[in-house]
């Protein structure tokens, strides 16, 4: 067979190939492509929705925390006096004064809080991955020393039947951490009670946006105790959260 013969046969093969493929519409896969794309879109929307759903309490918690930092003098006391910020009124009564050891260094003289920016918080993934009710706030003083405040949020809600719904019934914290009861009680007042052996209340019934920050606490001593939440109009609906305060170095 010479080259001409081969070229002739290849031309014949080309016609055969054309005949072979001519019955293929090339349309069959198109529907599948659209189906896959629409599924992917739905999936990604679902993922975004889910992520947003997870972010909502975090954003809320962050908003509350920022509000707390800016407006609630109680928590600002949590810093030792030498690093206390120069903003906000100190309208605290004498019996509320205490030294709340933050988990960071606190000895920088004349240190001032430089930021309340969210970017100065720990990475949000870390927060989400660990526990989305936990918020760690870090800022630098004028000497670039890091200060850290750890907030443990305990969200609650009172439903139409007057029942208290809690996201957790046990919270483990370290000495120096803060506890914040955050809830939307729809105007139903609750009473908070606790023994005070391990935690100290900083403030109560602060409203930050749509959130009612019912109570803020500071864990000052290792031990266990309950925070008891009781609706005023129905004391039978009491709920309690076990607070376990560990020593700083115990974890």
């Amino acid at each position: 067979m010479d080259d001409k013969d081969l070229d002739r046969m290849l031309k014949a093969a080309k016609d055969e190939a054309h005949r072979f493929f001519s019955k293929w519409s090339g349309e069959d896969f198109r529907e599948k492509v659209y189906r896959r794309i629409s599924q992917a879109v739905v999936k990604s929307r679902w993922q975004v929705g889910n992520r947003l759903k997870r972010l909502v309490p975090i954003i809320g918690a962050v908003a509350v925390c920022i509000a707390i930092m800016l407006w609630v003098p109680g928590l600002r006391k949590g810093m030792s006096s030498d690093i206390a910020p120069q903003v906000g009124n100190s309208s605290l009564s004498a019996d509320e004064q205490y030294h709340a050891g933050s988990t960071g260094e606190q000895n920088g003289a004349n240190a001032g809080i430089q930021t309340s920016s969210f970017t100065d918080f720990l990475p949000i993934d870390q927060m989400m991955g660990k526990d989305y009710n936990l918020l760690v706030v870090i800022w630098k003083d004028s000497n670039h020393k890091n200060y850290e405040m750890v907030y443990n949020f305990i969200p609650y809600r009172i439903n139409g039947a007057g029942q208290i719904a809690l996201t957790t019934k046990r919270v483990e914290v370290q000495v120096g951490h803060y506890l914040v009861l955050v809830g939307n009680d729809h105007g139903n007042q609750v009473d908070i009670s606790f023994q005070g052996n391990t935690i100290k209340q900083l403030s109560q019934n602060k409203v930050c946006g749509q959130y009612r920050t019912t109570a803020q606490f500071y864990a000052y001593s290792p031990g266990r105790e309950y925070i008891i939440i009781t609706p005023r109009y129905d004391t039978k609906q009491t709920e309690k959260v076990l607070i376990e305060v560990n020593d700083k170095d115990s974890r």
Partner: peptide
């Protein structure tokens, strides 16, 4: 088989 029937012998050889 279809290559041979619907295409052709040379096509299949290729």
């Amino acid at each position: 088989l279809l290559e041979r029937i619907e295409g052709g012998e040379v096509f299949q050889k290729v």
